[in-house]
Design a binder for these strands. Structure first.
Lengths: 212, 212
DNA sequence: ATTCATCTACTGGTTTACCGGTATTTTTTT
DNA sequence: AAAAAAATACCGGTAAACCAGTAGATGAAT
């Protein structure tokens, strides 16, 4: 239990009005939780944070204007004291580890029950690292090497998109105004980073991890 | 406006408790809408329907136990009078057309506002085919040929998985106990069906269409 | 000012994919 | 039983991908 008696003041960042309603409805039934704001976009949230203090942020990973992981990093940098509880549909291993590596204190899936959610919020405030059973199961499922999503550079992302779009090395080179040899190098680096042996597999894992 | 004065009796099928709460909270504010049941699984819903009458179903496409499209088909077959309003995160063209082809009277994304939702429910009861602006935009975005997912055979799916897993033609052949030449033929047919020029692009579109 | 990451580019060689056309056998459908 | 669909298999040729190793140029961080 959250030992401190102070009210937990949180803000919600999610672009689904339905989830918003649901969250607010659930949370307002708890006297020790106060919903300060309910933001649709990241910028909205950041503006709000400039003016007001918050204890915790319920952060949806999938936002329209910014990548949830980047936003998490940004918030943690600006306001290290704010706890972040990631909320998502994603049951992908890489997503989970990535956001936890970037300062989130917990990760729960949107199909969590309201009970689980409340408990998660309190646990996070107690400095615990929380995730619901399902998430734990996902993380537990083997995977030593996969625990870290390879870091993909800007240029590599571009090349990745071209490959996925069916462009050949020559076509990609032409499009990006670089030598085909350079394109090959990038592709090779990508394959190495993802630990795959060819382009189709590369595209597959990249797509599954929503990197394309 | 829904001309008939009768209360709209609907059931919700969605596996996200948060969305559940949100939906119920929104809907219960409207006197002319009655939420009969809130189901997590498809089987739960089907059992309920055996005993009670409903006017409309709010159906999430992504259910744990059954494919939303199949469920839509099933319900429409058993109870043709029941209107179905599909609810989803998917903004994929194919998903939308597919479910509309299978009896749904509307399709709205989960990031719709509560206002849009209510309006959609009433419009559906008025026998309109509804979808929110975003969905219309998605459908409008070109695509003549893409309106139909190519039909993929069992064997082709297997080959597709192998390609996506990074197996070469030879490796795939060995795994499936067939000639590499046969594997090539299948791959070629797949590429033709999807109208793509190489394996990476094939894997990309197939993955995006959740065929792998 | 100097690491460090990234982007760029090359050589030379091997393997695999891709294209075209064709065709038999097996399975499923009607 | 006939027709259609699917799975199987082949040939010959071209284009592209893949592998291993190396390395200069640029730009950001500290």
């Amino acid at each position: 239990m959250y030992s401190n008696n102070k009210v937990i003041r949180l803000i919600i960042i999610d672009d689904h009005p339905l989830v918003h309603e649901g969250l607010q409805h659930i949370l307002q039934q708890h006297a020790d939780i106060e919903v300060l704001a309910s933001c649709i976009t990241a910028t909205e949230a950041l503006t709000f944070l400039q003016e007001q203090f918050a204890d915790l942020i319920l952060l949806d990973i999938n936002l329209p204007d910014i990548n949830g992981i980047d936003l998490c990093k940004t918030i943690k940098k600006l306001y290290p004291h704010i706890k972040i509880l990631a909320l998502s549909n994603h049951n992908e291993r890489l997503m989970i580890t990535k956001i936890l590596q970037n300062g989130a204190s917990g990760y729960i899936l949107k199909n969590a029950s309201s009970k689980e959610l409340i408990q998660a919020i309190k646990d996070v405030m107690d400095d615990k690292l929380v995730m619901n059973d399902e998430v734990q199961k996902i993380l537990a499922t083997s995977n030593r090497s996969l625990s870290e999503t390879p870091h993909i550079t800007r240029r590599e992302t571009e090349i990745l998109k071209c490959i996925a779009a069916g462009l050949t090395t020559a076509q990609t080179a032409e499009k990006l105004f670089i030598s085909p040899l350079t394109v090959e190098t990038h592709r090779r680096n990508l394959m190495q980073k993802f630990e795959v042996n060819n382009a189709p597999e590369l595209v597959h894992v990249a797509t599954e991890n929503k990197l394309i």
